[in-house]
């Protein structure tokens, strides 16, 4: 964690540069789609947000597993830090998907498998945040929150393969396929760069939030220790 303090400014700067490169490329230089016109540019925001909404949930599930099995305290801190970031990325994915759906499908929203399973992902993140904040001592929330995260992990492959298993308005995967991507390099490159940028931003914000959670827990530990000395009642701390 000490290393993360030195790493963080570089990670944030890299995220900024790579995001800017990917998004400007997508917005200005990438070709418009022969069918979808300029709305295809929404993809350079929508798809990276979706990738990291799901990738974030996978990392939340891994952190929860480590927290449950090995009781590593940092894993619990990581899970607490990841959930809000994942929720924001999922919200971006849903909002931009809606803005893309209206002109291309003629509707903001349909209750089909892909869209509904991503909405479920959003609620899983919100549930994790709510559960984490429902306990006075955050350490006691670790177990139930980790169990929720692991049960919810079933949803991630459902999102991924929803476009193959059910009829949906959403198009099937065109980049993350087992054979070669079905996208021209002029579109693929800015998409991958934007994806990398969003991933770096995700990692930077999670690291920052982990540092915050660690400091907050130290503050709580100090206050609790003082509180015990004061006959179980936490005394108001004099302002310095």
């Amino acid at each position: 964690m000490r290393l993360s303090g030195a790493l963080l400014p570089w990670l944030a700067a890299a995220a900024l540069v790579v995001c800017a490169a990917g998004l400007v490329w997508g917005l200005v230089f990438a070709p418009r789609d022969w069918q979808q016109g300029d709305t295809v540019r929404i993809m350079y925001v929508h798809v990276p947000a979706a990738w990291w909404a799901m990738g974030g949930y996978m990392s939340l599930a891994v952190a929860s597993f480590v927290s449950l099995v090995w009781r590593h305290p940092l894993a619990d801190v990581a899970a607490v830090a990841i959930a809000p970031v994942g929720a924001v990325f999922t919200a971006i994915c849903l909002a931009t998907g809606s803005l893309w759906g209206k002109p291309m499908w003629g509707t903001w929203w349909v209750w089909d498998a892909r869209l509904t399973s991503v909405l479920v992902l959003f609620f899983l993140y919100l549930g994790h945040i709510a559960l984490t904040n429902a306990f006075d001592e955050p350490e006691r929330a670790a177990r139930p929150a980790a169990i929720l995260a692991l049960i919810g992990a079933v949803n991630v492959p459902i999102i991924k393969f929803s476009v193959d298993w059910w009829n949906t308005l959403h198009q099937p995967a065109s980049v993350t396929r087992f054979d070669a991507p079905a996208v021209h390099v002029d579109i693929l490159w800015p998409l991958l760069i934007s994806g990398l940028g969003f991933g770096l931003a995700f990692a930077a914000i999670v690291l920052l939030r982990m540092r915050t959670v660690l400091i907050e827990r130290r503050v709580r530990a100090i206050l609790a220790a003082r509180g015990l000395e004061g006959a179980g009642v936490s005394r108001p701390v004099p302002a310095a």
Binding site: R41, I92, T96, W100, F198
Partner: peptide, 26 residues
Amino acid sequence: MGGYAAFVWPSYGIGVGGVALLALVS
């Protein structure tokens, strides 16, 4: 944006604005 300005620009605004706001709050 080929007549789709009302959909493309808000998408970029939500994407960049959302991540930037989260970073600032954090």
